[in-house]
Design a protein around this nucleic acid. Sequence first.
DNA 1: CGTATCATTGACGTCGGTCAATTCGTGTGG
DNA 2: CCACACGAATTGACCGACGTCAATGATACG
Lengths: 239, 239
Amino acid sequence: MDNTCLRCPVRESTICGALGLDRIDILESYKKGNRKFTAGSPLYHEGDNCNNMFIVLEGWVSTTRNLVNGKRLILNFQLPGAFMGFQSTPFAPMQHSAVCLTDVRVCVFPRIGFNSLLLNNPALALALSHRKAKDEENMQSNFINIATRPARARLAYFLLSLRSQVIKTYTLANNADLYLPINQKDIADTLGLTNVHVSRAIGTLQKDKLLTFKKHRLAIHDVDRLSEIAEMSISPSTT
Amino acid sequence: MDNTCLRCPVRESTICGALGLDRIDILESYKKGNRKFTAGSPLYHEGDNCNNMFIVLEGWVSTTRNLVNGKRLILNFQLPGAFMGFQSTPFAPMQHSAVCLTDVRVCVFPRIGFNSLLLNNPALALALSHRKAKDEENMQSNFINIATRPARARLAYFLLSLRSQVIKTYTLANNADLYLPINQKDIADTLGLTNVHVSRAIGTLQKDKLLTFKKHRLAIHDVDRLSEIAEMSISPSTT
DNA sequence: CGTATCATTGACGTCGGTCAATTCGTGTGG
DNA sequence: CCACACGAATTGACCGACGTCAATGATACG
């Protein structure tokens, strides 16, 4: 396995791309190198003092929060190119957990020295600012989704946005059916619903021939009509 | 009115503090200067191509999204020190609106040249990364609040976190009663509830002597018990 | 074939929304 | 100082979306 930044599959789709090819060697010497995690294992736990940050190279990772009543909430799904573990106060305990949904390969960045790295490479710091802004915007979309949409629309919106995230990450065709390493309980925990209600909602969407979601494969048969259902209560100002 | 960065009331509580006093003149020549807005007026609108970004110096600003059914969702409240308008793609249309809740004084940063400013001042870029990470973390808290808590707990959590935001911003005493330039409809639009239900929920909290919210003044009488209510996502079995 | 996990389905309860009437508070004008 | 207006808050009656509980079905795995 070639682990050099030069051959990194996500270099251009993450902050590393901000350094040109001529300066990429800076990261080569900075990073701790690649590491593999198996499906189900955590990158870090809520409350941990985690020494590292991670760029996802292959696989899916979910970020979650566990609640006092034993329930959990999934904050989002991190796909290849995601930069994970950067916090507003670098050495504070992690505010959320990160759990691998598939076998995962990540590039490990030590937390120590990261500030210096950014100060010495402002292009990297700028790229990171933009990425964190993007993360916040995505979080806002999630927030709006659960705050304003009823369950059916909420589910439709979620599947559509996850679909476009996957299509973009893997540059797939628009009509491809997608592998999603999540089950209905995961969807419920993402949307603030119950698995029972998610099952019913997916059932009606399938009955209406809008999509099929079975055995971790999602096929959306009518993107336009599903979008109508999703955007039912929201203005079309964004895209 | 003295508008110099040297005497800026929020310099140390926003990204500008990352430049020491010796380099603060960089911003002095970069910024467009201060500007005043009256209560109710917008800093920018969703969909606008906004030329500027803003640091709040005085007053409250709300960021909102408008929905097709005439309703709106409040994303958060920006108090002095907040840096507003920075997006993942700098010249894209704004994803949300910003509306002044009080008379407001802001420091205006032109969008043009901002990237260069950051590239030439990595400390500023680093500070911005941290701030955007903080914004994302706050957004995650909001998300968790509405995704997991029933109305009463949701309201309790919101008031407590708004309280600590205000106390921190203005360095107030813990038992101070706070001026909040929002009404029950604003709270409803922040929490994904209706004004009617917010009224009922506040009513019961007041009846339980936990807090008083009248005429834009909030007094929390029992922070500990209110915190218990906020953190409890299940039925109130214990007292 | 037995077990575990996930998905489906039904019965039922409840939290919060909707609609509407009433009250309260504040500002305005006579 | 009172009368009125207008918006915000309160309260009641009613209802529906979604949660809870539980039984059943489907699928994979040892």
